[in-house]
Simulated assay, not measured.
Amino acid sequence: MLGLPAHVTACLFDLDGVLTQTAKVHNAAWKQTFDDFLRRRAAATGEQFRPFDPGPDYNRYVDGKPRADGVRSFLASRGVVLPEGDPDDPPEADTVNGVGNRKNVVLLERIHQDGVEVYPGSVTYLKAAVEAGLRRAVVSASANCGPVVAAAGLEPLLEARVDGLVARAEGLRGKPHPDTFLAGAARLGVEPAHAAVFEDAQAGVAAGRAGGFGYVIGVDRVGQADELRAHGADIVVTDLGELLDGGSTT
């Protein structure tokens, strides 16, 4: 009924792009932040300004990763290396953490202005998982996972949360490492082999495969089905509702 193997007793859901439509808000916040930084850098150095591409740049360097990893990864692709700084750096600081904190300021402004949208198919799937007695956790790199889950009205459907704040407090490596998903399974009291991972990011799918999880579902919102498969997805769908209605998968 849920499109999962019989041995799966728990579901570990990424948040942005799987349950909520905040991935596009994250993308827009990254673009604004990186473009502002690159524009200032070009003016100071005389280099040509090349804006952040919300397609390949977002999917390859940023999506699904902890904030600092995303900053470091994208800027490295442009030959830019910044000092790490401190996690509490002000958003004006030209450090890895400062740029990441600036992105967070922009993100919260956009969420406050526009609210949080959910994917209806994902909410239907969550409710079906509740009725089927499956354990359920959200696993996100975002430090804003809690407020977003609350704003989206998803708290009653989820039993546990592992997010960017938990990862920082417990020293968990971000995706594509499996640490956060393993922590999610542990919070639900299930072995990884009995848990399914639901991810829209290439890094997240790779984390699910690296952790030895029982089933890895890639959620293709942006036309990257082949890449999700290449990174370890067992199956790729465009919406979780497809798993309920027996529709075709890609």
Rank of each mutant, 00 (worst) to 15 (best):
L4Y: 10
A6G: 05
A10Y: 02
L12A: 12
L15T: 11
L15C: 15
V18W: 05
L19I: 01
T20N: 03
T22Y: 13
K24S: 12
W30R: 02
K31G: 13
F34D: 04
D36A: 15
L38W: 10
R39Q: 14
R39F: 13
A42T: 09
A42Y: 08
F49E: 00
F52M: 06
P54M: 07
D57T: 07
Y61E: 01
V62H: 01
S73C: 07
F74C: 08
L75T: 02
V80K: 03
P83W: 00
E92N: 06
V99T: 03
R102M: 04
I111D: 00
H112Y: 02
V116D: 00
V116A: 00
V123H: 01
V123F: 02
Y125L: 06
L126W: 09
A129D: 00
L134Q: 02
R135M: 08
V138W: 09
N144Y: 03
N144H: 05
P147W: 08
V148L: 05
V149F: 03
E159I: 05
V166F: 14
H177S: 11
D179N: 07
A186R: 15
G189H: 10
V190M: 07
H194K: 08
Q202K: 15
Q202F: 14
G212Y: 10
Y215H: 15
I217W: 06
G218E: 12
D226W: 10
L228R: 12
R229W: 06
D234T: 14
D239F: 14
T250M: 05
